[in-house]
């Protein structure tokens, strides 16, 4: 597969390490009332779609950027690639 890196352009997926569902960005608040339940869902419950999937890839043999790659898991078509840091900020993560 070729991942179109937002900064570096098309790069072979062999340079990347795969982590999993991009929802791992949405780490719950440890002080929430039901923090244990939220963390349980965060860590263990994932959708496994046959189709579009937003997932985290790390450009380990490259610029060390974490990316959010939107990929069709059936066709391997890659629909969008974003810097994970930008995605994280857009989802309200800060410090």
């Amino acid at each position: 597969m070729i991942i179109n890196h937002p900064i570096l352009g098309p790069r072979d997926f062999q340079e990347f390490t795969y982590l999993g569902d991009a929802s791992l960005i949405d780490r719950p608040d440890w002080q929430a009332d039901n923090a244990a339940d939220q963390f349980h869902d965060y860590l263990y419950l994932r959708d496994n779609p046959a189709g579009e999937h937003r997932e985290l890839w790390f450009h380990e043999q490259g610029d060390r950027s974490w990316l959010v790659v939107t990929r069709n898991t059936v066709t391997h078509e890659i629909l969008n690639v974003e810097l994970a840091r930008d995605v994280a900020r857009a989802r309200g993560r800060s410090k």
């Binding site: 900064i7 570096l8 490259g62 610029d63 060390r64 950027s65 810097l83 840091r85």
Partner: peptide
Amino acid sequence: PASWNANGVFAAWWMGP
């Protein structure tokens, strides 16, 4: 990004963001 340059005795390359 993805490039290097030289200035006098110095040179530098981009490693990441």
